[in-house]
Design a binder for these strands. Structure first.
Length: 861
DNA sequence: ATAGGGTTAG
């Protein structure tokens, strides 16, 4: 009994009431509904028919002689208006009927309420309800009207009224049950929906294919797979498993519960499928992280010739975004355009998400500007897009625009922003964000709390992080891991271990990430054996190490001086079937550097080429670094030359290599070269180039570089930059110039700078300055015994032997162990030596030997 | 009956 969806003039149509049939109907009891087919759906009423009814109505009104005929004509016209969605006109007509004192029957209220349901006209419906109550009698206690009222309130999303009325109805039918269960589903009261389903069956009513989809939706939302399977069995027994609606709901339910095998089984067994069925499978795969599968099904769907909808494209875009699949996502966008899909908030948001995940932020911006309607999700996605490419300022600007649109931030906005503040170490903004969360009750969201804790941890405020962590009463795995990682990063392995135990006491089982952080904490604290122990423990407890675990171990071993073991671990990782990525390869190259083993480095290079792992620029950059630091600058240059599209990091690595090998001319030539290639140098470039100059004592070139950096590249020099120039100037004997520079720089001179000045003073015989500098240096690093020696030497040089004795005394008092046997200094041809106490001290003996070799005379005091 | 966004480890 399908009713034609379209109603062109060429289509034969059931005749509407003719005047004759109207008269015939007039003799029937007035409860008769003119044409049962017409009550199916409001869209079914064609305009033509409506006009017909209008003419009939006027004609009848003129001719109507009897009360009943008039009533009937009103009724059918009103019913027609209701189904047209013109509820207000219908009500007006009703009022007119009352004025004419026409006797109305309960069905007329039912008809009006149905009209209100179509239009979701809550206010009008309430007025009708009020009239029903006012009328009382059979109108107020009429099961037909009561059921209609239940459905009306249910469809208008007023659960209180709907449930109260529903409880009063003695004879509950499938329709009212369906309405109430549906309402509970829409409101998110899934358990109530399922309880209703049970109660309905207990009352002996058979659920139909209108109720079942809602029940399955509730099962899916609650992830109650047991009940879901039960309903599946029930559906089969009822014989409605062939219904597309029911079967699609089953697919969706299994997908939501994560049982994709069963979802697929239902899907494969379906005799008839529609778009929703296909969409449900695709969505199921995407929501369970099986993005490749989702894309595969999408292509199968295309093959089957099914026209995609918004849902299809949205899901395809999600899968593409998760995989970073550029082609597929762009295909999705093209498809949306070709199919003429309107750019609604969902589709637009999916597009923005896709484009920002693959790094095409301009395309994301374009989609955003084309969208007519935007909601919080849309705005959040644009903000997140900017954060992902590191444009935090732009993200903040979008926040401002969002506020101008009178939209307020939600927990997603804040979590995104906090992660940006964590990445950029912006404590100030982070604090502002935290305050916003407190004011707007966003601290009740665990995700937000995690992002706040992480922000404080990354901004080196571990106490604040811990405080926020402690004040949160919901602690999920991610929050625990955030706190654990914070302690691990600092090398506070004891605290990390405490977190690790405590989370288990609070019934949160650790995952790979927890183990990885624990291992990192030990490695950062130099506890290599403990780290290795944890690596075995996790495996014996059934947690498989992943790429990050192996990489953590490899880099940690390399940094702790266990280069050989790091290389072995790298091999074992591959034996375990894990393919190395950029980070792990860089880690193992670091091992070669720390071992200064050119042999291992070469072998590794060969291995990378044989296994096609030598693909990315970061790896090539590390290779350059490795060859240079292992002593082979020529090989470093060869690797460098082989890189096709050179970017800044590669140049920086090569310049640093030249600097390391004292090849300042080559370093400066490369600096000129990168500028000619249109590459913009950064502060690292200048650090390396300045080191090269200072090493080669190229004063003019060094000063020119410094000038270039400040004037043409707008780079604020760091203390390291100043240090290079100060070193350069002082070593060339231009101490005055060096001190002038120190006077203008916005930093306090650090130990390294003072040390290099001290050395220059020594070289150039500036004894007074040496004394001053060693004093300053000692203030900076009171625990460094080398500084005491420098100071003692300075006093010795000045012949102030009393002061030397005092320094020795001071050292002893402070418990500094490495006390050398003597201080000595050569002034002109004269050598001054101070021997402290033990003359057989190894240091003293060393000096005797040296002096003897130099053929110098010694004067003692 | 089906769709879009955020937090943790190398």
């Amino acid at each position: 009994m399908p009713f034609p969806a379209s109603c062109g003039n060429d289509q034969p149509y059931p005749p509407f009431v003719s005047s004759a049939s109207c008269l015939a109907m007039a003799s029937l009891p007035y409860t008769t509904i003119p044409n049962p087919q017409l009550s199916l759906s409001k869209q079914s009423i064609p305009i033509e028919l409506h006009k017909q009814s209008q003419t009939h109505f006027t004609k009848l009104q003129e001719n109507a002689k009897t009360h009943q005929i008039l009533y009937q004509s009103y009724f059918s016209h009103m019913s027609s208006l209701c189904k047209q969605g013109q509820i207000q006109q219908a009500v007006d007509l009703f009022v007119e009927m009352e004025h004419k004192n026409l006797q109305v029957c309960p069905e007329i209220y039912g008809e009006l309420l149905q009209g209100c349901v179509y239009e979701r006209a809550l206010h009008t419906g309430k007025q009708i309800h009020a009239r029903i109550i006012k009328k009382g009698g059979i109108f107020a206690i009429n099961e037909y009207i009561e059921t209609k009222l239940v459905i009306f309130y249910a469809k208008c999303d007023v659960p209180e009224a709907s449930n109260r009325l529903f409880r009063r109805v003695r004879l509950k039918n499938v329709f009212s049950w369906a309405a109430v269960i549906g309402l509970n589903c829409r409101m998110g009261f899934y358990q109530e929906a399922l309880l209703g389903f049970r109660e309905m069956q207990e009352n002996g009513l058979l659920p139909d294919n209108f109720v079942v989809p809602n029940v399955l939706k509730a099962c899916g939302a609650l992830e109650w797979i047991g009940i879901g399977k039960g309903v599946h069995g029930y559906v089969v027994k009822l014989g409605c498993s062939g219904c597309v609606f029911v079967a699609s709901s089953l697919v969706d339910m299994y997908g939501k519960c994560g049982v994709l095998e069963d979802a697929r089984k239902v899907f494969d067994g379906m005799p008839e499928r529609n778009v929703v069925t296909w969409n449900s499978v695709i969505v199921g795969y995407v929501q369970n992280g099986l993005n490749e599968e989702a894309i595969k099904v999408f292509y199968e769907m295309k093959e089957a010739g099914v026209e995609p909808t918004h849902v299809t494209v949205s899901s395809l875009l999600s899968a593409s975004a998760n995989l970073g699949a550029l082609q597929e996502g762009k295909h999705g966008h093209a498809l949306a355009v070709v199919c003429g899909l309107e750019l609604n908030t969902n589709l637009g948001s999916s597009l923005i998400n896709f484009y920002s995940k693959v790094g095409l932020i301009e395309d994301a911006e374009m989609v955003f500007s084309k969208m007519l309607e935007k909601d919080v999700v849309t705005w959040n996605l644009l903000i997140s897009g900017y954060v992902q490419v590191g444009e935090v300022d732009k993200a903040l600007n979008v926040c401002r625009l969002m506020r101008l649109e009178n939209l307020s931030f939600d927990s997603v906005t804040l979590a995104t922003l906090m992660s940006a503040f964590a990445d950029t170490r912006s404590l100030k903004f982070g604090k502002v964000g935290h305050c916003y969360c407190i004011r707007n009750n966003l601290e009740s969201d665990v995700v937000v709390v995690s992002s706040i804790v992480d922000m404080y941890a990354k901004c080196e405020k571990i106490d604040c992080a811990k405080q926020v962590f402690n004040s949160s009463f919901i602690r999920d795995l991610v929050l625990w891991n955030t706190m654990l990682a914070a302690f691990a990063e600092l090398g506070h392995s004891g605290e990390a271990l405490k977190m690790f135990y405590q989370m288990q006491l609070e019934s949160v089982p650790p995952n790979v990430i927890s183990w990885n952080s624990l291992i990192l904490g030990f490695l950062k604290n130099g506890q290599v054996n403990e780290a290795k122990d944890m690596f075995w423990q996790m495996q014996s407890l059934g947690v498989q190490p992943n790429l990050v675990t192996w990489t953590t171990l490899i880099s940690g071993l390399a940094k702790s001086g266990f280069g050989y073991e790091a290389i072995l671990t790298f091999q074992r990782m591959q034996e375990a079937g894990i393919k190395p990525n950029v980070v792990s390869i860089i880690g193992v190259l670091l091992a070669c550097i720390n071992m200064a083993s050119l042999q291992n480095g070469r072998a590794l290079h060969g291995h990378l080429i044989r296994h096609s792992l030598y693909t990315s620029i970061p790896i090539a950059t590390s290779l350059v670094d490795m060859y240079a630091k292992c002593g082979n600058i020529d090989q470093a240059k060869r690797v460098f030359d082989m890189i096709e599209h050179k970017e800044l990091p590669v140049y920086n690595a090569m310049i640093s290599s030249y600097a390391l090998h004292g090849q300042a001319v080559e370093a400066l030539a490369l600096y000129q070269g990168l500028k000619e290639e249109g590459v913009k140098p950064d502060y690292i470039t200048f650090t390396n180039a300045l080191y090269a100059c200072s090493h080669a004592m190229m004063v003019n070139e060094g000063l020119e570089l410094f000038f270039d950096m400040v004037s043409y590249h707008n780079i604020n020099p760091s203390i390291e930059h100043y240090g290079c120039v100060v070193n350069l100037l002082s070593r060339c004997g231009n101490l005055d110039e060096a001190f002038r520079l120190i006077g203008t720089m916005p930093y306090k001179p650090d130990a390294q700078m003072l040390g290099s000045l001290l050395a220059a003073c020594r070289e150039h015989n500036k004894i007074e300055l040496e004394e001053y500098l060693s004093n300053e240096l000692l203030k900076l690093q009171p625990d460094n015994s080398g500084n005491y020696i420098a100071m003692s030497n300075a006093y010795a040089a000045a012949g102030r032997w009393d002061e030397v004795t005092k320094v020795r005394q001071l050292m002893k008092e402070r418990g500094l162990r490495k006390i050398p046997g003597c201080s000595w200094i050569q002034i002109g041809e004269e050598l001054h030596v101070f021997i402290a106490g033990d003359i057989s001290h190894p240091e003293t003996e060393k000096i005797y030997m040296t002096l003897a070799l130099l053929g110098m005379e010694m004067s003692f005091r």
